[in-house]
Structure formats: C-alpha cells, structure tokens
Simulated assay, not measured.
Amino acid sequence: MDTRNIKYFIAVYEHLHFTKAAEELNISQPTLSQQIRILEAEFGTPLFDRIGKKVVATEAGHLLRQYGEKMLQAERDAKSAVKELLSGDRGTVRLAVLPSDLDFQLVPLFVQFKSKYPNIQLQVFSTIYVQDEVLNHNVDMGIGMKGPADKKLVQIPLGSEPYHLFVNSASELAARKEITLEELVQHTIVMYPKGYLGRDLVDKVFQDEGLELHTAMETSSATSLLQLVSAGVGATIQPKELLSQFPIRPDIISIPITGPRPVRHLELIYGADRFIGSSQRQLMNWLMDFFNNRFLNP
C-alpha cells in the first residue's frame, strides 16, 4: 500500500463516484477502479459497496479514510520538513481565521509579515469553522473561539475580549458611557444569524440572565452589520476591538456593556500530530505577539 493508492481511495470516498474521482485525479476510470480493487484485495474486504450506479463506503472504507488522511498528512509533513531544511525561511502556511478578525484586525499584520518574510507564501482562509478546518487538515493552524480541550489539538490561549455595543453617533444612545443587557432588549439590534459563533455567544449571556435578544435584521457579515449601524437601522453587539485597526467609520461609537456581558476567548490551534516548520513557527510567533499586545494594551 502506498500513498498514491490512498489518494485514489480518498478521491472516490469524497465523490462516491468513480468517474468524477478519475476526472479529478486526471486518470482513466478503469485505472482508478483497478487501483481500488488492489487496495481491497490487500485489506481482504470491500472498501465500497457498488449498488447499481450508486457507490457507498463500507465500514472498512470509513476506517481507511480516517487513517489514510493521517498517512497523507505525514507524507506532506515529511516533504515540508525536508524542503524547509534545504530552503530556510520558505514554504507555505495555511491559516484559518474568523471572518471579522480577517476583515478588521489581521490584514496589517499579514502585510508586515510578508514584508519581513517575502519567500513564505501565506494562505488565509475566512471561516467560522476554524477547528474543523484544522482537524480535517485543510489548514496548518487556526485562530478562533476557545473550544473544549481536544487531545488531537494543541490549543494556545491568546486572550479574552469583551463585547461592546456599536451605535450610530446620531443615536440617542451615543452619549451613554455604558449600558446593561436589560436596557439592550429595549433597543433595535442587528446581529449575525443564529448558529454563528458570535451570535450564539451573545445569546447565551442574555439567556443566562433570563433575557432574550430580539433582532430587527440579521446578516452574516461584520462589514454589513456596521453598514446597517452607520445607516441608523440599529445597533450591534461586537468584540470591543473590532474597529481598532481600521477606524473607517467615525460615525460609529463603541459603548461598554456593564454587568454580565459577552466575552470571547480566543486561541491559536494546530494538530497535535502536525510537523510545525520554521515558516509556520514564524507566523505563530507573530500572531501570539499581536494578540498578546492587543489584549494587554487595549
């Protein structure tokens, strides 16, 4: 069994269609079928059930997918380690971050990083499913909300950040120095839809206080939420430092929430079984310094 056949198997597993998998791999369908039969003969059990034109993974297929991904990742890690040994500060780093942090916080950092390490290719992916992207080996590391301890991950705390109320400078609330959750339920609020990390975090704090947050409008983008605030549609509850790097909306004012309030805890994560090369390590150090400075010097 070699990793080439594992790649063939995973392509079929993901598509559950031999012709589509063959097209992705740029090989013929008969060649792909033959390689899968070789794997099945080696394991002594079918990896897929073929019911007419329908392909379904067997229990053995599910197991092989789990361990096969680890084999492919180990191969990638080995190649990365040798490549970096020979090339120095080179390589590719794949990073997953929350959309609002990418849009409003991290771009200046990435510009500085690229200036100092021009030979490192940085690929940044915006997603609310940071942990899943890391666990599925789609990225090398991620920055997201703190999750439960997971032995498959290395989880490095980056700090905590309270949520504030963002209001239009012409709003009746603009002169307030602080505001409570009880008062917020009386005002027009625009937020992310339910199911988004930031929305669920805010909702839980309200629920813990026996309150319910009602929204006038919902959108999945922090940029669009701020546009709604700027247009006077409503106020929004967002992380305190959302506009610290890009104060592009002087018409928006941030008001602290007093008493029980939403707080997000951020962490940097990567796979516990991953090889972390020099390029990844350089970016990790920059990210940890950035967040440490931000939270220690608000």
Rank of each mutant, 00 (worst) to 15 (best):
K53I: 04
Q34S: 14
G271D: 07
G198M: 13
T180C: 08
Q245W: 01
T223F: 03
R65C: 02
A11G: 09
P256D: 11
I257H: 03
K20Y: 03
E75R: 13
N293S: 12
E69W: 07
G144K: 00
I253Q: 08
V56P: 04
Y117N: 04
N293P: 01
P193H: 11
A235Y: 00
D273A: 13
Y8K: 10
M1T: 09
S278F: 01
Q105K: 10
E59K: 08
H164W: 13
L122E: 01
Q227S: 13
P157G: 11
R294S: 14
L211V: 01
A272I: 04
W286A: 09
H265F: 05
N293M: 14
S254R: 07
V134T: 07
T3V: 11
F48I: 07
T3D: 15
V56Y: 04
F18C: 08
Q227G: 12
D251C: 05
V55Q: 00
G61P: 06
V229H: 06
E178W: 10
G159S: 07
E75H: 03
V107N: 08
K177T: 10
R274E: 10
E161I: 05
L268P: 01
A22K: 11
F125Y: 15
Y196M: 14
L226V: 01
D203P: 02
V56S: 12
Q73P: 00
I253F: 05
A60V: 01
Y163T: 06
V124G: 08
P162C: 08
P148E: 12
G144L: 05
